[in-house]
Simulated scan of single mutants.
Amino acid sequence: MTTSPRLDDATIPIRIRQQARRRRRITPGRRVFIVVNGLILSAFALLCVLPFVNVLASSLATPGELATRAFILWPETFTLDAYRYIFSTPTIFRALGVSAVVTIGGTMISLVLTTLMAYALSKKYLKGRRVINFLVLFTILFSGGMIPTFIVVKNLGMMDTLWSLTIPVAINAFNFIIMRSFFQGIPESLEESARIDGCSELGVFWRIVLPLSMASIATIGLFYAVYYWNTYQSAILYINKSELWPIQVLLRQIVIVASGMNADETAVDIVPPAQSVRMAVIFVATLPMLLVYPFVQRYFVKGALIGSVKG
């Protein structure tokens, strides 16, 4: 009497993996789908990259080339005159420092306030949470407006201070909703076990909730950082001292001055054309965020989807 060979615990996972590989065998139709999908996504990615390449190439092109070519991807002759013009004054480094302080400090303040508020309002046992959540959601559709906000900032004594660029916009309603939805998806059993071990409410938030929320926090932090770095309208309204201008406002002044430059033959060799300066300004203002994004890119999709799907 013959018996089938006995499978031990070590061979069972191998058999399962082999069967899974057979099921995942790529069919001709799936192969065609992968190729077409890759071509379409590559075309969309190229459309996103080409404008930035054009901006960089135009900032490095000569005046004659800018006058004859409408779209430049690779300049025939490279020149750094536009960047020499922009960085010819030390005020731009001061403006970069102001923007860095506003971006780093404002992002930290916003993350602290947003996460604390979202965690508290994600608890069903919190009294009055429905009313507070409604008030937060109400601000997405309706706001006080520019003039009432200006009056509040002025009466609080924040004019001509960097606080005026961070405190009035410390909590964004959309970012708050994402964080609250993510906190609602964390199993309550984890928090209850921490409370049984003696953790306080802040201890549960610091030791349990925050480590599980790094993806969403990194994503929200990127949203806040981009907003603070691009701060423009608030600086125009609340900052009158030129030494406190962020980079966006200073670069606007540079573009205005460059637009008034003469285009005669004697000035072309000394000062770059306005178009080249504009492109260099765009590149300088965009580069810092492009350098930061690769470090948080792996958290971006995961954090945004987790926070928006749950809830």
Rank of each mutant, 00 (worst) to 15 (best):
C199K: 07
A267D: 14
T89F: 12
T149K: 06
A100E: 11
V268L: 13
L287T: 09
S216P: 11
P63L: 07
F283Q: 07
T11K: 13
S234A: 15
P75G: 04
L244Y: 07
L96E: 01
L250D: 00
R15M: 14
L41F: 11
F205M: 08
S58H: 04
A263F: 15
E65C: 03
I282D: 02
G144D: 06
V53F: 05
Q233V: 07
G128P: 12
V277P: 13
L80Q: 11
Y232W: 11
V152W: 01
F93I: 03
G29N: 10
V284E: 03
L165P: 08
P148S: 01
R129C: 09
A173S: 15
M1G: 11
V53W: 04
L39H: 00
I16H: 04
G185I: 04
T77L: 13
N133G: 14
R23M: 14
L56W: 07
L96F: 14
A218T: 03
I217Y: 06
P28V: 07
R207I: 13
V268F: 05
I12L: 15
Y293P: 07
P273C: 04
I72W: 01
R129F: 12
Q19C: 03
T115S: 15
K241R: 15
I109M: 13
V36R: 03
I86K: 03
Q18V: 09
L113C: 12
A70K: 06
S164Y: 01
F78P: 01
A235K: 01
G221F: 09
R84T: 10
L291K: 03
G128N: 09
P294F: 10
V101F: 14
N155W: 02
F205G: 10
P90T: 03
S308Q: 09
S122P: 07
M117K: 06
V131K: 01
D264L: 10
I177C: 07
P272G: 08
R298I: 04
L56Q: 08
Y232Q: 02
W229Y: 08
G303T: 06
I177T: 09
L47N: 05
I140W: 12
F87C: 06
F71W: 04
S213N: 03
V301Q: 11
I247D: 00
K302L: 15
T115V: 04
R207Y: 14
G185C: 01
A120C: 05
T266P: 06
T114F: 00
G128R: 05
V101T: 06
T219D: 14
R278E: 11
E192L: 05
L41E: 07
G38L: 12
S58A: 14
Q184V: 05
I247H: 00
F87H: 06
L121I: 02
E188A: 03
I178F: 09
L96P: 04
A258I: 06
L290M: 15
S213R: 00
S308Y: 04
Q275Y: 14
L41Y: 03
I236S: 07
S213C: 09
P28G: 12
P288N: 04
S259Q: 12
V209R: 01
I178L: 14
V277I: 09
L287D: 13
N175Y: 07
I171P: 12
L46C: 10
M214F: 07
V292F: 10
V101P: 02
T219Q: 08
F183I: 03
R21W: 11
A218V: 01
T166V: 15
V257T: 12
A225W: 08
L250A: 00
R23Y: 13
F205A: 04
N155M: 09
F142K: 10
E188C: 01
M159K: 01
P28S: 06
V169D: 11
I140R: 02
